[in-house]
Amino acid sequence: MIELKTGENETEFVMSREGEEANWTIVVIDKETGRSIDRARATLRGEVKYTNSEGLAYFQGIRKGTYPFVLIKEGYETIRDTVVYR
């Protein structure tokens, strides 16, 4: 959703050519034990995915841009990072 306000507004759109999308698999493991962490909540571009019993979650069809990424699991330090696809 793009919100406009009274007066002039400007929005930059980054377009990807077909076939230029990225797919991203994340693997989440416990640093101390090395075991997979399931049901960790990963958020990218406002899209939420939960890791499965193998600690895996998939983001597909990522278009070019810069996105905030947050990985949350109760009892663990939250990971915040930026994902860049140029």
């Binding site: 930026t82 696809y85 140029r86």
Partner: peptide
């Protein structure tokens, strides 16, 4: 910062 390339990408996070 995590950089992605066109196609398949994989990143491991240790929590």
């Amino acid at each position: 910062m995590i950089s992605l390339i066109t196609g398949e990408n994989s990143t491991t996070f240790t929590m």
